[in-house]
Measured scan of single mutants.
Amino acid sequence: MIINNLKLIREKKKISQSELAALLEVSRQTINGIEKNKYNASLQLALKIAYYLNTPLEDIFQWQ
């Protein structure tokens, strides 16, 4: 199981879903879906999320 901390980290950094989506060149709905565990981010997208949030990938998506 993967624990998804994207919403928590994004909100801590005061970045909206729309802002993050624009940086990543995806839709806001994609970010929303990832945060609600409706969609799994591809490895490429997960790495981009970590880069733009300046946060280690394993802090955003944790295996349990």
Rank of each mutant, 00 (worst) to 15 (best):
residue 57 L to V: 13
residue 52 Y to L: 12
residue 49 I to E: 00
residue 6 L to C: 07
residue 25 E to H: 15
residue 11 E to P: 01
residue 44 Q to G: 13
residue 11 E to H: 07
residue 61 F to D: 00
residue 30 T to C: 15
residue 52 Y to T: 11
residue 58 E to P: 09
residue 39 Y to M: 14
residue 14 K to W: 05
residue 36 K to Y: 06
residue 30 T to V: 15
residue 1 M to T: 11
residue 34 I to P: 01
residue 64 Q to R: 10
residue 59 D to A: 10
residue 58 E to M: 09
residue 48 K to C: 07
residue 10 R to N: 01
residue 42 S to W: 03
residue 42 S to A: 04
residue 55 T to K: 04
residue 34 I to A: 00
residue 60 I to W: 01
residue 41 A to T: 12
residue 43 L to R: 13
residue 3 I to C: 14
residue 40 N to Q: 14
residue 35 E to P: 01
residue 45 L to N: 01
residue 32 N to E: 15
residue 5 N to F: 07
residue 7 K to A: 12
residue 60 I to L: 13
residue 44 Q to Y: 11
residue 55 T to S: 09
residue 1 M to E: 06
residue 21 A to M: 03
residue 46 A to C: 15
residue 37 N to L: 07
residue 3 I to S: 11
residue 35 E to Y: 02
residue 14 K to V: 05
residue 24 L to I: 09
residue 28 R to F: 10
residue 44 Q to L: 09
residue 11 E to C: 12
residue 41 A to H: 04
residue 31 I to N: 00
residue 8 L to W: 09
residue 14 K to N: 14
residue 45 L to C: 07
residue 30 T to Y: 15
residue 49 I to K: 00
residue 11 E to S: 07
residue 62 Q to F: 09
residue 39 Y to L: 15
residue 45 L to G: 00
residue 39 Y to F: 15
residue 12 K to H: 12
residue 1 M to W: 10
residue 56 P to I: 04
residue 18 S to R: 14
residue 60 I to R: 01
residue 60 I to C: 03
residue 64 Q to E: 14
residue 33 G to T: 06
residue 59 D to F: 08
residue 60 I to V: 07
residue 8 L to F: 12
residue 46 A to G: 11
residue 59 D to T: 08
residue 51 Y to Q: 09
residue 47 L to P: 00
residue 35 E to K: 02
residue 12 K to W: 07
residue 34 I to G: 00
residue 7 K to R: 12
residue 60 I to E: 01
residue 50 A to P: 00
residue 58 E to S: 13
residue 61 F to R: 01
residue 15 I to Y: 07
residue 9 I to H: 07
residue 55 T to C: 09
residue 8 L to I: 15
residue 48 K to D: 06
residue 18 S to H: 11
residue 44 Q to T: 13
residue 52 Y to Q: 07
residue 25 E to R: 14
residue 24 L to F: 00
residue 51 Y to K: 10
residue 39 Y to P: 02
residue 49 I to F: 04
residue 30 T to D: 05
residue 18 S to G: 12
residue 13 K to I: 07
residue 34 I to F: 02
residue 62 Q to C: 10
residue 6 L to Q: 01
residue 37 N to K: 09
residue 17 Q to R: 07
residue 55 T to D: 03
residue 1 M to D: 05
residue 55 T to W: 04
residue 13 K to C: 12
residue 4 N to F: 07
residue 50 A to F: 04
residue 62 Q to K: 10
residue 5 N to G: 04
residue 20 L to H: 00
residue 17 Q to G: 04
residue 8 L to S: 14
residue 37 N to T: 04
residue 14 K to M: 10
residue 10 R to H: 03
residue 7 K to Q: 13
residue 28 R to V: 15
residue 27 S to W: 04
residue 40 N to P: 14
residue 22 A to G: 11
residue 58 E to H: 13
residue 51 Y to T: 08
residue 57 L to F: 08
residue 6 L to P: 02
residue 14 K to G: 15
residue 16 S to Q: 04
residue 29 Q to A: 14
residue 2 I to A: 08
residue 5 N to P: 01
residue 50 A to Y: 06
residue 16 S to C: 08
residue 11 E to K: 12
residue 35 E to H: 04
residue 14 K to S: 09
residue 32 N to L: 08
residue 7 K to E: 09
residue 14 K to L: 09
residue 10 R to A: 03
residue 33 G to P: 00
residue 13 K to D: 02
residue 15 I to F: 08
residue 23 L to H: 13
residue 37 N to Y: 07
residue 4 N to S: 04
residue 47 L to G: 07
residue 15 I to L: 12
residue 62 Q to T: 10
residue 6 L to N: 01
residue 21 A to I: 04
residue 33 G to I: 06
residue 13 K to E: 06
residue 23 L to F: 14
residue 52 Y to P: 00
residue 5 N to H: 08
residue 36 K to W: 07
residue 11 E to A: 08
residue 16 S to I: 04
residue 10 R to K: 02
residue 40 N to Y: 11
residue 25 E to K: 15
residue 12 K to D: 08
residue 45 L to V: 06
residue 55 T to L: 04
residue 34 I to D: 01
residue 27 S to E: 07
residue 9 I to P: 01
residue 49 I to M: 06
residue 44 Q to E: 15
residue 46 A to E: 02
residue 6 L to T: 01
residue 32 N to M: 13
residue 23 L to I: 10
residue 46 A to N: 03
residue 38 K to Q: 14
residue 33 G to N: 15
residue 45 L to R: 00
residue 1 M to P: 11
residue 39 Y to A: 10
residue 58 E to V: 09
residue 57 L to Q: 02
residue 43 L to E: 07
residue 42 S to E: 06
residue 33 G to Y: 11
residue 21 A to P: 00
residue 16 S to H: 05
residue 23 L to V: 13
residue 15 I to C: 07
residue 48 K to M: 07
residue 4 N to M: 06
residue 8 L to D: 14
residue 5 N to S: 04
residue 58 E to I: 08
residue 39 Y to Q: 13
residue 20 L to Q: 03
residue 62 Q to Y: 08
residue 4 N to K: 03
